[in-house]
Amino acid sequence: MSPGQIAALVAAGAFVLLVLLMGIALFKLGRTLDEATIAIRKAHQNSDPIFSGANATITHVNTQLERVDGITANARAVTGNVSALTSLFTATLGGPLVKAAALSYGVSKAVRSRRKAAEARVNKHAARRTRRGNR
């Protein structure tokens, strides 16, 4: 056996070892792809109940939103009625109430000023008497 033949045998053995290692890797890769395929199939089968549950939930939410729209419309109508009532109250009673309040304020201010003036006159007379009595 010549050195060239020995090198060829070693190269052939290395090639066989390389083919075996690649075969093992390909076998494992094939099993991994089979498992991935099975997982995808199961996920597809289990997605139908999830989607039907989501559809039921969305239907329920839409029903509730319609109810909320009705409530909102009623609240809007109540707000409009209160606004109309407030403007009616302001138009019919607001003006006279403001006038009555202004009148009562003016009368109370006039009474206070007359009392102060009367007190000032009484104090002025008392001061004159005191001065006359001291002379």
Rank of each mutant, 00 (worst) to 15 (best):
A102P: 01
A102G: 06
A102L: 07
A102Q: 10
A102S: 07
A102R: 08
L103D: 00
L103N: 04
L103P: 01
L103W: 04
L103A: 07
S104L: 01
S104Y: 03
Y105F: 11
G106L: 13
G106W: 11
G106M: 08
G106E: 12
V107G: 04
V107D: 03
S108C: 00
S108N: 02
S108V: 00
S108W: 00
S108Q: 02
S108A: 00
K109V: 06
K109E: 08
K109A: 15
A110T: 10
A110R: 13
A110N: 15
V111D: 12
V111A: 14
V111C: 09
V111G: 08
V111E: 10
V111Y: 08
V111F: 11
R112S: 15
R112W: 10
R112E: 15
S113C: 09
S113W: 09
S113N: 14
R114W: 05
R114Y: 03
R114K: 04
R114E: 00
R114D: 02
R115N: 06
R115L: 04
R115P: 00
R115A: 04
R115C: 04
R115G: 03
K116M: 14
K116E: 15
K116L: 12
K116Y: 13
K116A: 15
A117H: 09
A117K: 09
A117Q: 12
A118D: 01
A118K: 05
E119S: 12
E119Y: 05
E119D: 11
A120I: 15
A120Y: 11
A120H: 13
R121G: 00
V122F: 00
V122P: 04
V122W: 00
V122Q: 06
V122D: 02
V122E: 02
N123L: 08
N123Y: 03
N123P: 01
N123A: 12
N123S: 10
K124C: 05
K124E: 08
K124A: 10
K124V: 05
H125W: 01
H125K: 08
H125N: 09
H125Y: 03
A126C: 07
A126K: 08
A126T: 12
A127C: 07
A127D: 11
A127R: 15
A127I: 05
R128D: 08
R128C: 02
R128Q: 13
R128V: 10
R128K: 12
R128L: 13
R128I: 13
R129W: 02
R129A: 09
T130K: 09
T130P: 06
T130F: 03
T130N: 07
T130L: 11
T130S: 13
R131F: 05
R131N: 11
R131W: 04
G133L: 13
G133W: 08
G133R: 15
G133A: 14
